[in-house]
Nucleic acid binder design. Structure first.
Lengths: 190, 190
DNA sequence: TCACAACGTTAACAAATGTTTAGATTTATG
DNA sequence: CATAAATCTAAACATTTGTTAACGTTGTGA
């Protein structure tokens, strides 16, 4: 029941929930710490956990048919992260989740998530708001790939991932932007 | 209370809802028909409606700072469409919605949507499932921009938009793929 | 501390994609 | 039906982006 204060705060921001209801729910979670570089979640497995980051940073990546790795996302403190698509569809994950620093997470097993939908008085609403939050993020991302150049997206990356330049190597940032590290190097000069 | 059978069917697929509850909800909607080429929703206005397409096809587009128009999405029969991000955030829309054929929609005004969240017994769950459905679609899209070439995305476009080649001009498809119509012409030859 | 791997930059060249212009065909509409 | 607009293709050239290889720096674990 310790170290869930951040998640408790986030939940109380999103829905009406009593201290007691919240505590019962959070009792069904557990804490986990990943070392720098450690893999949090592997592809080819049906994901059955959602993570809430207390401290640290998790990179989401995927490998294409040529074997090239692409960085899809960075997840920061006070955010939920999972291969959410495959979690919901109960299909094997395609993403790798990896801690870029020592990272502490609250683990929400599927049983806990389902319990929340069933028994928390505003559980469905919480789920809706979280899905909507990420929908808005993805919509902004998709929009930006259409209307911004890679350079412009690079210049604005700290809007979405503050301090990312001190927490992730440049080649991962380039990969997130969809360009090669060599090309990012070039863009920075101009 | 007519011409809502398709939407009724979709709702009953997603949540437990009685015929009566459904009818009360659908009484708060209205039907609208757009002619071919007609604009459904303009940018710079706070969107206050969600549309469910009975028949037809709606294109979603955005204009960048250089004045170039980009096709972001096609919405087909039995799908919901809106500038959902800005609907939720109550901020001015950035997208243009335009009917590519004569299109019949069920209009869900914001008041109706809010009523559903408040009074439908599984209203929040319905909202969650819809947001999750579009999250999965967006996730697939983002993933594909990383791991597929434009040609591969072109070859698979009918997976997502069946029969799109007969319903939208090629330059809009090229725009959706993020390439110029000239380049799409080239890709088709190879 | 030392040695090795990871990282960032640069240059030269190759491949992918965009731009401009033109022309032919199809489609929409009075 | 006739005309104008929209659409698709093509070629030539320009720009952007990727690839390969080399080099120096930094970080990290034995």
């Amino acid at each position: 029941m310790n170290n869930v204060e951040q998640l408790k705060y986030v939940m109380k921001q999103m829905i009406n929930i009593t201290e007691e209801e919240c505590n019962i729910f959070l009792n069904k979670t557990n804490l986990k710490i990943f070392k720098k570089g450690e893999v949090v979640s592997k592809p080819e497995v049906i994901p059955n956990e959602i993570y809430f980051i207390n401290k640290g940073i998790i990179r989401v990546s995927i490998i294409d048919n040529e074997g090239t790795e692409h960085t899809i996302h960075f997840a920061l403190e006070n955010q939920f992260i999972a291969d959410y698509s495959n979690f919901m569809q109960r299909t094997p994950s395609m993403y790798t989740l990896q801690a870029l620093e020592e990272t502490e997470v609250v683990v929400l097993p599927r049983t806990t998530v389902d319990w929340g939908y069933q028994y928390l008085s505003e559980g469905q609403k919480l789920g809706r708001l979280i899905a909507e939050y990420y929908f808005i993020y993805q919509d902004m991302r998709i929009k930006n790939t259409y209307i911004l150049t890679p350079k412009q997206r690079y210049d604005r990356i700290t809007d979405v991932f503050p301090n990312i330049h001190n927490r992730a190597p440049q080649h991962m940032i380039a990969s997130y932007l969809g360009i090669t590290p060599i090309h990012l190097s070039r863009l920075k000069k101009s």
